[in-house]
């Protein structure tokens, strides 16, 4: 009666949420102020919750998270990029949360497998995007140092943004329309933050569609080693 779940799409969306959640969790104990530490951990928790629902649609959540090799992950290269300085984390948040909000809004309006989760998560992601937007404005339109760092971060991550709009097979949404809406939204925030819209290409030959096909950047392997180490060393461990 119900068509089988689109496992490949569940993995792509679930891996995005899982990997970014882990990266944000790395800020615990290192964020610039306590409130920010709590904020990033809360955003990570929202993403982890989404990842659990999505990965459970594709199989066993623990096996998928802890026992897959690097090339079996389908997340965007953007979300696996290291935290860098706080500006890099905010630029990554701005690019990804804007994308995820648009994507979930479209999925929520349909009646596919992802609609129930998307309808719920889009409200959470709205707060993530707001958080990223406020920090982009504050850093971009702040001191000379914060402006310069935010400019460098928004440019450094720009080449990973094109991959977001490569259609995920079986996800029937208006990808071109989403790309236009994303550019519009991000462009407007950067402008208000007195930051230039990065000029380079949104993807290099080696990044185009790569994460969704299992090709990842160097830091991802190290991140996975840390994320999976405990589970692999002590199978079935719990506390």
């Amino acid at each position: 009666m119900t068509p089988t779940v689109n496992t490949a799409a569940a993995l792509a969306l679930g891996d995005d949420a899982l990997v970014l959640s882990h990266r944000l969790g790395e800020w615990a104990g290192h964020a610039p102020v306590l409130e920010e530490e709590v904020a990033l951990a809360n955003i990570a928790l929202d993403l982890l919750g989404q990842a659990r629902v999505l990965l459970s649609m594709a199989g066993d959540e623990d096996e998928l998270a802890y026992l897959r090799e690097e090339r079996a992950f389908r997340n965007l290269q953007l979300v696996e990029q290291p935290n860098g300085d706080f500006a890099h984390t905010i630029a990554r948040q701005l690019y990804f949360s804007t994308y995820q909000r648009l994507l979930y809004a479209q999925l929520a309006s349909g009646d596919g497998d992802f609609a129930p989760l998307a309808a719920k998560a889009v409200k959470e992601v709205a707060y993530h995007q707001d958080h990223a937007e406020q920090w982009t404005l504050r850093l971009g339109d702040g001191t000379d140092v914060s402006h310069e760092r935010m400019r460098q971060a928004s440019e450094a991550l720009w080449r990973f943004t094109g991959e977001m709009f490569q259609p995920i097979e079986g996800v029937d949404i208006d990808w071109d329309g989403m790309r236009a809406a994303w550019l519009d939204s991000v462009g407007s925030i950067l402008r208000r933050a007195t930051l230039p819209l990065p000029e380079g290409p949104q993807s290099g030959a080696w990044t185009a569609g790569a994460g969704r096909q299992g090709l990842h950047t160097e830091p991802f392997g190290r991140m996975l080693a840390e994320m999976q180490h405990l589970h692999r060393s002590h199978p079935g461990a719990s506390w």
Binding site: E35, V38, N42, D46, E124, D130
Partner: peptide, 13 residues
Amino acid sequence: LLSRFSSTACKAL
């Protein structure tokens, strides 16, 4: 508003 996120995901500080 001090922070959009507080002791739990559902609260702001």
